[in-house]
């Protein structure tokens, strides 16, 4: 186990320590890229560009980071804003790419489940999908998701509740299979 986030952040803030920053990037790159791939509906090139932009911004503003939220929450906040900016600029392109990549992503063991899950997620509104992702797949608490998405906590709760209900309805067959598995 390496140094904590706080230790690494302090080294970057005080000495612009590039090695410490590279450790932070390596630590979070997979989950941030995964999240952005979901949000761009499988457009890997766009997602990686956004992830790169996210980490460059993190480096630029790390001097202003005071630890009021966790570093992880802050990274997601920056990544989400980069994604929204991109979406505002090129919304039609993102939608077009989406349909193409939805079918081909996740070519591994749970492919069938993920295909159905992605189809179910596509039935949700953008905000429901994003809030559900932050909650179910990233384990953020409601106030953290509210920070990331810059929404009131009540709105976030509503998005998550409605999103989950839809998912459960659409994935009910998978739930039955899962409940047959020994615990």
């Amino acid at each position: 186990m390496g140094p904590s986030d706080e230790e690494l952040i302090s080294r970057v803030q005080k000495h612009d320590n590039r090695h410490a920053f590279a450790v932070l990037v390596r630590r979070y790159q997979s989950e941030i890229r995964n999240t952005l791939r979901r949000f761009t509906r499988g457009n890997e090139a766009l997602a990686d560009d956004l992830a790169q932009e996210t980490f460059v911004k993190i480096h630029r503003y790390i001097g202003d980071f005071r630890g009021e939220s966790s570093f992880r929450t802050w990274i997601y906040q920056v990544a989400y804003r980069c994604f929204l900016d991109e979406q505002r600029k090129h919304r039609p392109d993102t939608e077009e790419v989406a349909e193409h990549h939805l079918v081909t992503e996740e070519p591994h063991e749970g492919e069938a489940f993920m295909r159905d899950f992605n189809r179910a997620m596509a039935m949700l509104s953008d905000e429901q999908r994003q809030a559900v992702h932050f909650s179910l797949q990233r384990g953020f608490a409601h106030p953290e998701i509210a920070d990331i998405m810059n929404l009131p906590v009540g709105t976030v709760k509503t998005h998550i509740l409605r999103g989950r209900n839809k998912l459960q309805e659409l994935l009910s067959e998978w739930q039955e299979e899962n409940s047959d598995e020994p615990r």
Binding site: E106, F117, L167, Q175
Partner: peptide, 14 residues
């Protein structure tokens, strides 16, 4: 079950 299933499916990006 949904949370667990989703977390199981998350793959690490090298």
């Amino acid at each position: 079950w949904l949370e667990k299933a989703l977390q199981r499916q998350e793959r690490y990006i090298a």
